[in-house]
Computed example of a mutant assay.
Amino acid sequence: MEDMTDVDVTKEFVEANNSFLPSIYKEIVKEEKGNVLVSPLSAETILALTHSGCRGETAEELRIALHLPDDPAKIQSAVKAVLSDLKTNEGCKLFIANKMYIKKDFSINDEFQKTANTVYFGDSENIDFTMNERAAETINSWVEKVTENKIKNLIQSQVLNNLTRVILVNALYFKGAWYQKFSLTGTKKIKFYKSKNEVVKVDAMTSEPSKNYTICICKELNAKLLELPMHGDASMVIVLPDKRHGLADLESKIDKVFFPYRFYSTEVKVLLPKFKIEHQIDFSAVLQNLGVRRIFSEDDADLSGIAGEKGDLVVNAVLQKTFIDVSEEGVEAASATNVAISVFYSSAKKRREKFIADHPFIFYLKVKNVIIFAGRVIEPCY
């Protein structure tokens, strides 16, 4: 049993992760017009590890963006507790891995190495970045392996060169089955109102009215939220605007979309499109828009907690690649985020409801209240 202090600290990290999500979602959709998929947990975890090696204002900028507490011991305690809890979750397959690829003959600080091993359950491997194609192949092969071959080619060889010192990688893989599976024979073609001028035909899963689903009718968001339970302490929430073309209005309230609303158990008839999304995000731009700038500046970066002195190391890339597959059986999802470091010289009505997702919507996947994936579906592709 955890004492209250551990519970509070863990709750703080979960809230930090879930608060980080709307911040990054807003930045991502500024540039993206179509489907979006992001793993806040993958990014939060590897960036929290990076933060543990930052010092001074470099660390403070990153801490604020990640919504982390102002206490390194608290952060480490929370991360370890959350990752341990998620790793031992039964009923669904969830794999989280962190790895450091360190330049051959480059010495990492013992304290940072220890933190990576004991807090983030991370491993490390020395590698020759000057052999950039072979190095990229080594990193990508590891990511492919731990994400069941769902994330391929995370890092391009041209990102690596003789200045690269450390590559930090987080890989996350999830596979879970619906508590109540959708019948394969119930899947049918429906019209999906992609935009005011475009309607497409998509495959949609259907279910008869069931009390296994819970719903929230949220007037504040002008949306319905449907929670689809999965085996293990996991579920997917679909946030559907009331209006066919209400996604932009919903996204303008994104800070409130991922709140833990109160859901009610009632009979719900569901019609939900199958969808697959594969997405890549340049987190460097996202973080800089959130005020994280020093870590990318050779004049200001202080990553001396990882190795060397202030100014020796700088982050030159933060990339995330994600994949999700939502079908009759359940959900399969994967994510990988890498940080490349270089040296320079509600409310609800209690009655039978219909939930017809025939227009763009937001979704998120959570395990033990930690949001591990989120995104939007503009056009269901399968």
Rank of each mutant, 00 (worst) to 15 (best):
K276V: 04
K11C: 10
T322D: 08
A348I: 14
Q156H: 12
T147W: 00
G308E: 05
V36W: 01
H359P: 12
G186N: 15
A348V: 15
F174K: 12
K99L: 01
R63Y: 12
D312M: 04
S42R: 06
S84L: 11
V9Y: 10
K321Q: 06
A248C: 11
K243H: 12
S347M: 13
F129V: 06
A317R: 05
L290K: 07
F129E: 06
T58C: 15
L41S: 11
V270S: 13
V339R: 07
Q156P: 02
K74V: 10
Y173L: 01
K211D: 15
E278W: 00
K150M: 09
R294I: 05
Q113F: 08
T130D: 06
S157P: 01
L240V: 13
T187F: 00
A234C: 12
L240E: 13
G34P: 01
E220L: 11
V239T: 11
A204D: 11
K368V: 09
V9P: 01
A248E: 15
E148D: 13
C216W: 02
E133G: 08
A171Q: 06
D71M: 05
H359K: 10
C54R: 07
T130W: 02
V318F: 02
I362V: 15
C218D: 15
V199D: 07
G330A: 00
E251S: 13
A301H: 02
N289R: 12
E148Y: 05
N161P: 13
D123G: 01
K350P: 03
E111G: 04
F112A: 09
V315K: 07
M131I: 10
F263N: 15
L365W: 01
T266I: 11
L21E: 04
W142C: 02
V29G: 04
N161D: 15
K33V: 06
K224G: 10
V143G: 01
A336H: 10
E137M: 12
N109A: 02
I24R: 01
V370A: 07
I127G: 08
L226R: 13
I75D: 07
K350D: 08
V200H: 02
I64E: 14
Q280L: 05
F275I: 06
L62A: 08
A78G: 05
Q320D: 06
E198T: 11
V29N: 07
I75K: 03
V36S: 04
A374P: 05
S304A: 12
I108T: 04
V370R: 07
C218L: 11
Y261T: 09
E90N: 14
V326R: 01
I127F: 03
L365P: 00
K219C: 03
N117L: 10
L313G: 00
K74W: 07
A81F: 05
L272W: 00
K87S: 14
K310N: 04
G375F: 03
L313Y: 03
I356H: 12
E61S: 08
D302E: 06
V166H: 01
K87F: 11
R134H: 10
Y120I: 04
Q280C: 07
L319E: 06
S210I: 12
P241Q: 10
A73W: 11
K145I: 03
I155H: 06
A171R: 04
S141C: 07
S297D: 12
M4Q: 13
F361I: 13
E144C: 03
A248Q: 14
K201M: 08
K74E: 09
G176R: 08
I215S: 11
V343D: 13
K99T: 10
N132Y: 10
L247M: 14
